[in-house]
Structures are given as C-alpha cells and as structure tokens.
Design a protein around this nucleic acid. Structure first.
Lengths: 346, 346
DNA sequence: CTGAAAGCGCTAACAC
DNA sequence: GTGTTAGCGCTTTCAG
C-alpha cells in the first residue's frame, strides 16, 4: 500500500523544517506567512531551519488549499507588434508588484485561441487580461464570461471591465492637428490589427471633427494579404490616393505600425514626408521616436494603462468593484514630431 | 472541526463528476487522462457528466500529486527590445506545442532579479530558460544552479545547456562582407545590452577576419547613460570617429538596435548611408526590414532558436541528455540590404 | 502561543 | 475494468 520512496532529490517540505526545528507544521506555516504572532525564540528556530534546509514553500500546494491562485492569465496580441510587447512588459511588472505572476498566451492569427483559454482556466488563474486582441469567437467568450474576473485593456467588450485610452478624444486631437496645419483632404487609415471597438471610436472621433470642419471624411482599410488598400470593400491603389490632383495631403492612421507602412509606401512612390504628405499615427511605440521615423502620433501611456488594468483586476478580485462592469479611461495626448507639416501651397 | 461550507461558486471537482456519473473518482481520472482502458459505456457516462457539469480538471492539484509541473520559467530581457519580444513569442508557442505554459519574468535593469527567480522556484517550474540576459549575480546563479534544468538561449554560461547562433561565424561573415566592399577602416560597436559571451564571440569573429586581412580592429562601446561612445573606457566623440580624414567608413554593430542608433547619429551629422558609411547589424529584428531602416544584418533565426531551446529543455527534463551541459548552435547568415555599399573613392 | 487534525483536488498503487 | 485508499505540501480551524 505504501508507494515507492520518493526520489532523493526531493525538495524539503514544511514537515522537514518542522522536524528540524522541533516544532509543528503549523508553527512553521505561521512563521513563513508571518500570520499569527509567534514567540521570538520559536521564530528564530524556524528561520534557522528554513535557512539550513534551503526551504522554499510550494506555492502550488498553498494555492490548492487556499482555493485561489496568484496567477493572472494574459492574452496578448502578437508580441512581434511593439505596442503589445511593451504592454506585456508593463503588465508583467505591475502584476509582480502586487504579488501576481502572469501566464501569457499568444493569440493565433489575431483570434483568441480557445484551447489556450481553457488552459488558463485549468490553471485556475485569478483573472484574465485581454491585451488588445483583434477578435474572439462566441465559444471563446462563453468559456470565460461570468466565470472569473476579466479586464479588457486597450480593447473592449460589454462582459468585463474595460481599461483603455480615450480613443475618441485622441482621434479628435490628431485630426484637429492636421486641420490646423491647413490640410483639408485628410484620410483615415484603419489597420485591421487594431481591435474593433478601438477602431470604431477612433474613426468616430475623426469623423466628428471632419464634419464639424465641413470636410469630407475618407475612410480606408489596409488588407494584409494580399497587401492592398480597401474603400467600402473596393480595391484602391495607393497611387491614386497619394498622387495626382485630388490626392490626400494628410493621413491619420489608426496605429503607428500602419503609419510606418504609409511612410514606406510614400518613400517608394517618391512622395516626401512631411512636405507632400503629413502622417499621424496612434500608440507612440518606441519605434516612432527613431530619427528615421520621427512620427507625429497620439500617445497611449502604456505604463498608466497597465497600472490601471492591474489595479482594476485586483479590485475586482477583492470584490471592491460594483457588480456591473466598470469602464476606465485615460487621457491621450498628441506628440508632434517630423511627419506632419503645414499643407504646402499647390 | 468541520470547516465552513465552501462558497456556492465552487467549481465542479472530480468527485462531483464521479457522483453524477455514478462511478468512482479513479474512473473519472482514468477517462480524463485517457490512461488505463475504460469500458466504452463507462467512458460515455463520464464524458457526459463532464460536459454536463462543465468540469475542468485542476492542473495545480494534478501537478502537486505528480510532483512535477508543466510550467517553464523564462527570464526575458527587456521586452521593449524587439528581438527579445519576438523571441519570447516563439518560446511561448513552441512550449505550448509541447504542453508547457511559460511564466515570464522581466529582468530589472538588465540584471536578473533574484526575487523573480525565487518566485519561479516556488512555483516549482520544470525548467528555466534564460533569454538573452545581460548579466546575473553570483547569488542568482547559486539560487538555481544544479537545482533544475536550465537552458541559455542566445547567451551563455557553463552551468546549463546553451542554444545560440554561431556568433563567431556570423561576425566573420559580416566583417568579410564589409571588406569585400572595399572597406578598410571598419569599427566594431558593442552594445552593452548584448550578453557578454555573445558579444565576446562576435568581437572575436570580427577581430579574426580583420587581422587575417591585415586590418586594424577598432572596438568601441556604447554607453547608454549618459549617452556616449567609449574606447578603452575613454570617451570618444562620434564626430571624431565618423567625420574627418581618418574616419571609419564601415561599422559592424553587435546588434540591430545599436546599428539603428548609428543610423540616427549619422543622420544628425549629415553623413549619408550607405554612400559615406556602411552599417551592418546583428539579429534581423522586424524593424530592420522597414524601408526607412533597410539594414544589412546577420539573421538570427528566432523560430529555429526557440524550437531548439524548447527541445533541449524537454530532453533535459526527460533525462535523455548527457549529464554534462550540451551546447547547440545554429547557423547564421547575412542578409544584404541598403545600409551597406562599396567604399566610395575619397 | 503551539500542536493536532482535517482537508484542498487530484493521481497512482493495489485489491477486488 | 473499476473501486478503495493513501498521500502530494500546504493552510486553517480548533483544543489545549
């Protein structure tokens, strides 16, 4: 009935410490968690034993008995996207500061993967952070909805708390900047890797300002494969848009990566930035600051977003939030760099 | 003696499933792990019960009793660095493919943080991957050395398995490329964020080829704060190096990020790339492919590196590797883009 | 203030 | 094949 003896490399357990210190398990437990007050002499004996054995508590066992983990699940967008990578880093750091570890899972082709979500549930994560995902299946939603705390960071859904920048206002500021430089033919370029709700809000901000200024909104959408530019699902050639009499003189891109693609495209077509074309991005990834890129863009404060996200998730877990989802927004501002300039006289 | 009843939101356990299916725990266990062969009828009853209750096994409990986890710890360099971010993504994906989850911890100021390592040990991770860290304290080393499988990816140490590119050869190829373009005054720029052993190997490769060609090696080092350029610990002004009679005409940077800084610096000084100065990087981060950057660089195949790293770690855990550390190397090749050109006649 | 004892949810012998 | 049972390492009442 006895199972075979454990391998010799076994790590010391709380009983080993208790035995060595000549006390009971509970006393050791009390010391390592410094819970109930323990007599100084006892505490010293335990501490010595811990050091002697190089004892390290097994948090898995602890979390099993406590019926809750200190692990967050995080569903990150493609980490090859610098915005997501920077965000992931900030999330990890702020979580660690609150005593949580993070298990990251990548999205697959920008779609949240159900198997990964199930894994997170099997690990009994304390909550899930969705970082800027582009989409999620209904089945994926049902998997987690209502089962554990969820916060959407830089993206949105009605079945969890939301932490994001004020996309509408950010887009307004960007568009006003271009108008104030004298531009009138200003296009909005939607990058499909931007999450839907965020894209809609940015587009709406753009539209509002354009209409307020009696200008015609022009919305285009990148298609990644095969590469192309779409307007109302109809193919548009970049040349027709960027060259010729009725070309646009300014573009507001829904993210920095898209803006940088526009720069590339302009370079190929011999269009000078910012003399011939002004470009504004969204995010302010590190990349945007490079001298060779030098992109005017709407800053998403990643540090603040990550901190707020972690705060929200911990508060939700602690039960100190209203039952209905909260929606927290941080202010966005524009940083003007070298990719925008006054419209040149024709 | 009875503890207070569990909260109503309790997730179903294996006993709940067993009760509903009218079988024993073990049978359920056998079914969900499809271990021992179970009669089809039984299996169906269990499967139904699982579905009905929406049961999901608690992997923490499983891992506790099995005395081993399916979690890897990964110590990543600064994720704001695209090379690390891309590497982290690949690691996560290959680990997932082998049934492992990854807990990432960031390095703090490029130094591996002892507290984070202790956390990983407390989670009883099955192994640790060090991804391109810049340095580690002696205490940090003692914390893990010999206690569990460790693999160094894109960095090196003698107390664990190593998976990396062939840095020496990569540097040779890069240097030969510059020499073949007619350059004679070629400098090596070391970026301090590159891990020591990798930097040494790249530098050695550079040196070897330079000496073989009877050229004088010139090694410089970036300092991040305050920004500056050092040679033998003495301050060197970029102007003196890049302008004037005895200026270098080509630079080989120990990583792409450093190479991009050189581009920035050249832009500021009015030095044209590649006409006046050729630059070669190392890594081939996504960034390097942008039209505006267009960097000639040594490609580190991240996919292959990540796969090999995960293979090595799993093999080590399975005990199918020799007791002494293994060292696995992948070939590196050069991709020629627009940042290098033949030396212009003076 | 300390110790005894009852589990947390699961796996793995082993007996039937 | 299936059920019984003894833990994995820890926390947490509750008695003393």
């Amino acid at each position: 009935m006895k199972r075979k003896p454990l391998e010799p490399t076994r790590l010391p357990t709380i009983v080993d410490v208790a035995r060595l210190a000549g006390v009971s398990k509970s006393t050791v437990s009390n010391v390592i968690r410094d819970a109930a007050c323990v007599a100084p002499a006892m505490r010293a004996r335990v501490t010595n034993a811990v050091a002697a054995l190089n004892y390290r508590p097994n948090v898995l066992a602890r979390q099993l008995v406590q019926q809750r983990t200190k692990i967050f699940g995080a569903v990150a967008g493609d980490l090859a996207n610098p915005f997501h990578a920077e965000m992931a880093k900030q999330i990890e750091q702020h979580a660690a500061a609150k005593g949580y570890r993070v298990m990251f899972v990548n999205t697959h082709a920008d779609e949240v993967d159900e198997a990964s979500l199930e894994q997170l549930l099997e690990y009994r994560v304390a909550g899930i952070l969705f970082l800027a995902h582009a989409g999620m299946s209904e089945r994926a939603r049902l998997l987690v909805s209502g089962k554990l705390p969820v916060v959407f960071v830089t993206c949105s859904a009605d079945w969890g708390d939301v932490v994001s920048g004020d996309d509408h206002r950010g887009a307004e500021v960007a568009t006003r900047h271009l108008i104030s430089l004298g531009h009138r033919r200003i296009a909005y370029f939607a990058d499909p890797i931007v999450e839907d709700a965020a894209d809609r809000a940015r587009r709406a901000g753009y539209r509002a300002v354009m209409e307020e200024a009696d200008l015609q909104p022009n919305v285009y959408r990148w298609r990644r494969s095969p590469p192309g530019l779409l307007r109302n699902n109809r193919e548009v050639s970049p040349e027709s848009l960027l060259l010729g009499e009725r070309r646009v003189t300014a573009i507001f891109s829904s993210n920095d990566l898209g803006a940088i693609e526009i720069l590339d495209c302009a370079d190929r077509l011999g269009i000078r930035i910012p003399e011939d074309l002004s470009v504004v991005g969204f995010d302010d990834i590190l990349l945007a600051r490079l001298a060779r890129i030098n992109l005017t863009t709407v800053v998403q404060p990643q540090h603040a977003l990550a901190e707020l996200a972690i705060d929200t998730l911990s508060a939700r877990i602690a039960g100190s939030l209203p039952t209905t989802p909260v929606r927290r927004t941080v202010e966005l501002h524009l940083v003007v760099r070298g990719s925008t300039a006054p419209r040149s006289p024709e």
